[in-house]
């Protein structure tokens, strides 16, 4: 513990970098998964294919994927960022599809019958009701991303993984523990916050 207390500033900087890569990756992943999920939700056959492919992508071991990405993008921020975007796709898109398809068909029929346009049905009825499920997906994706982002330390990125991998190289168990505990604390905090948001948007 003495390491952690002596290096609080450094841990904070690395935690901030950790949050940064996770948040950036999730933002980009959402920008892809939301339209993709909405498009796929209306086409059950396509949804099966899309989720199947994303699911397969999700099963690739993260170190193996990173090794490939380092070949493509070099060391640093890029490989871990791309890996996080790719992994998050599955959980995000799956929950968008599930959320949209879970909307009561009677409400969609009523919305059409009352004269909402296709766009209004999506923005005023389907998406608001899918939102808790979508946020549930964000929460799961965020926790996974926080864990996977520790590998950034291995491929030249920043984040709490730097402590873990430096600790391993330098035979400093306290550094490893400090990095692991900080990453875990971050995951628990984000999980808790997103659970609150999820409850807030539930009807």
């Amino acid at each position: 513990m003495s390491y952690a207390f002596a290096h609080l500033g450094r841990i904070a900087v690395l935690a901030a970098a950790h949050v940064e890569v996770v948040a950036a990756a999730l933002a980009v992943a959402m920008a892809i998964a939301v339209p993709l999920g909405i498009y796929a939700a209306r086409r059950p056959h396509l949804a099966g294919w899309v989720l199947g492919i994303l699911g397969a992508l999700y099963t690739i071991p993260s170190l193996a994927l990173l090794a490939v990405l380092v070949q493509l993008f070099g060391l640093g921020f890029a490989p871990i960022f791309v890996a996080l975007v790719a992994y998050a796709q599955f959980m995000l898109a799956r929950n968008v599809v599930a959320g949209i398809n879970g909307v009561d068909p009677a409400q969609v029929d009523a919305a059409r019958g009352l004269g909402m346009s296709a766009r209004q049905i999506l923005t005023r009825v389907e998406f608001p009701q899918a939102l808790p499920v979508v946020i549930g997906g964000v929460r799961i994706a965020a926790i996974a991303a926080i864990a996977i982002a520790t590998l950034g330390g291995y491929v030249g990125g920043s984040g709490l993984g730097v402590l873990i991998f430096n600790g391993l190289t330098l035979h400093q168990p306290e550094m490893i523990v400090a990095g692991s505990l900080a990453a875990s604390a971050l995951a628990v905090t984000v999980d808790g916050l997103l659970r609150i948001v999820e409850r807030q948007v539930r009807t």
Partner: peptide
């Protein structure tokens, strides 16, 4: 869409919008 707004529509399953209040539901059209 304009046609539907000019014609009332009620169904067996009601289909009230679950995330809206009663007033917001009635106010839709």
């Amino acid at each position: 869409v304009e046609l539907r707004r000019s014609i009332g529509y009620a169904i067996q399953a009601v289909g009230l919008f679950a995330h809206m209040s009663v007033a917001e539901n009635i106010a839709v059209v």
